[in-house]
């Protein structure tokens, strides 16, 4: 006689843990970094230093949020560092030319969107791999910045409100950091709760399926590069406002920090997956490591080595460990 029984469903906690394994592991890594550096240097955990860390992390975080969207579509944007440099230089030139700073900011946001739109058009409508288009962008945009400034730093004068964006504080918290948090929250809500976020994930997961169910797949794919361009403009403005000048040499190696932050946070390069919380934790980890190494009086050049190593290890863990759908604890036998 056959007896029919229903399969037991496992604990929802195990499901939750395995689904968020990557965010949990980066959170753990972040806490380890915090513990390590506070043990190595008593100045690390002071509020002054921590505020400094978040102020410096702000531009990275803003662009990393946009990069999360780009990578979720299985694309990449290598041009972000050059774009920040170009807009950083341009905003200084524009303000030096007598344009009032609020208008200059508007123009810069438009410029970022436009540059991102051109790259997005090549990638989405012309089918050129994102890697190639943005690698060309990396060279062209930095070149344009150098050409415009001839390599000199351009000072910004008499723009108090503008400087406040980079140096100001609201109830003791740095304005750039607050802006970055705002951007991260916005990114989180958009990816989790809106149709646009759903479209970005769909395009990254299965572009043809997205097209077949009637999503504007190409437009969505192009749009993430526009978002990245705007984010670069915001980051460039914050940098210019903090340093009080614009320079074609700004944001060297910025793209690496941003990409490292995103992949460290568990957003898969294969697309279809985005973790905003992971990106925030990844950015903070990168920022803390950079800051901690300096406090330990280790050569600043060493941070580059660490950043590169983190990218490699993060991607390695991404492909080797997490794709296998490993579970914490033992699988229950039925």
């Amino acid at each position: 006689m056959a007896t029919y029984t229903e399969r037991q469903s496992g604990s929802w906690l195990a499901d939750l843990v395995s689904e968020h394994a990557q965010v949990l592991s980066i959170a753990l890594f972040f806490l380890l970094c915090l513990a390590f550096f506070s043990a190595m240097n008593p100045n690390f955990l002071t509020s002054g230093n921590l505020l400094n860390v978040v102020r410096q992390a702000a531009p990275i975080l803003i662009v990393a949020v946009a990069m999360t969207l780009v990578i979720a579509t299985s694309g990449i944007d290598l041009s972000v560092g050059s774009m920040v440099a170009l807009i950083n230089a341009t905003v200084a030139i524009v303000i030096a030319a007598g344009v009032s700073w609020p208008i200059a900011i508007m123009l810069m946001l438009l410029m970022g969107a436009l540059i991102g739109g051109v790259q997005g058009w090549f990638i989405s409508y012309q089918g050129i791999p994102a890697f190639i288009v943005t690698l060309a962008g990396l060279s062209i945009l930095r070149g344009a910045a150098l050409f415009m400034t001839e390599g000199y730093s351009i000072p910004i004068r008499d723009a108090g409100g503008f400087f406040w964006l980079g140096r100001g504080e609201i109830v003791g918290l740095p304005v750039p950091a607050l802006l970055a948090v705002l951007v991260a929250v916005l990114g989180f809500v958009v990816m989790r709760r809106t149709t646009y976020g759903r479209q970005v994930i769909s395009v990254g997961s299965n572009m043809e399926a997205a097209r077949r169910v009637g999503m504007p797949a190409r437009r969505v794919l192009a749009s993430v590069y526009v978002v990245a361009g705007i984010a670069c403009a915001v980051a460039a403005i914050l940098l210019a406002a903090r340093l009080g000048s614009g320079s074609s040499n700004a944001a060297q190696g910025f793209e690496l920090q941003v990409i490292a932050a995103v992949v460290l946070g568990g957003t898969a390069l294969q697309g279809g997956k985005a973790s905003m919380l992971g990106t925030v934790l990844g950015t903070m980890t990168i920022a803390v490591i950079g800051n901690g190494l300096i406090l330990m009086h280790i050569s600043p050049f060493f941070t580059q080595i660490v950043t590169g190593t983190i990218i490699l290890v993060a991607i390695w863990m991404n492909t080797r460990l997490f794709d296998r759908r490993w579970r914490l604890g033992k699988r229950k036998t039925a």
Partner: peptide, 11 residues
């Protein structure tokens, strides 16, 4: 209903 189903695996 497509033969390849046209589903998004990550969703």
């Amino acid at each position: 209903v497509y033969q390849d189903l046209a589903l998004c695996n990550h969703i």
